[in-house]
């Protein structure tokens, strides 16, 4: 089976196993972003990494993203560890992937590591962000609207896309 991402990459673009990732540009970037959009739509959950007092902390969150992939959205109740961590340190990393936990994942799975920073959802954008989020997770409406819940936006700095086991590229948005 052909690796989807590998086929998207121009031959000139150097992607070497185990080496520093190269930035994707131009048309390739557009096509790769399209791939990411599809992946994000297919995955309801992401792994969110926060840190508190120097200790990393990961958890699962139901996420959604805007069409340009500039932002990722998720929500959490305020009594959680991840929320306390975010208040102290807004920089986060997320992992979104389509692995099935089978051997073939080494060939077929795609994993995207997201680096970014938490920003509050401003009043002017709240409605549209909520719509984006609820379009993907309509069943979380009660959860999202609870006063004990925080609706959060990750301002994405870059995506690091891993496919074919060791193909790695980086995209800034």
């Amino acid at each position: 089976m052909k690796d989807e991402i590998a086929s998207l990459l121009p031959h000139e673009l150097e992607v070497r196993e185990g080496e520093a990732p190269v930035e994707s540009k131009g048309l390739e970037k557009t096509r790769l972003l399209e791939e990411l959009r599809k992946l994000f739509e297919s995955q309801p959950l992401a792994v969110l990494a926060t840190q508190g007092e120097g200790t990393p902390y990961v958890s699962l969150v139901a996420f959604a993203s805007d069409v340009k992939l500039k932002y990722l959205l998720f929500s959490t109740t305020k009594a959680t560890r991840k929320y306390a961590n975010l208040l102290a340190d807004p920089s986060v990393s997320l992992l979104i992937d389509n692995r099935k936990n089978i051997l073939e994942d080494f060939r077929d799975a795609m994993a995207v590591t997201v680096l970014g920073e938490i920003e509050p959802v401003e009043d002017f954008e709240l409605k549209i962000m909520e719509n984006i989020y609820l379009m993907k997770h309509p069943h979380l409406v009660d959860f999202l609207h609870s006063p004990t819940n925080a609706f959060l936006k990750v301002n994405v700095e870059k995506y690091i896309v891993v496919s074919h086991f060791q193909h790695v590229v980086e995209i800034k948005v």
Partner: peptide, 11 residues
């Protein structure tokens, strides 16, 4: 499905 009720019921 379209309204998310299936998920809400599940929850």
């Amino acid at each position: 499905d379209k309204t998310g009720l299936r998920g809400r019921i599940l929850l």
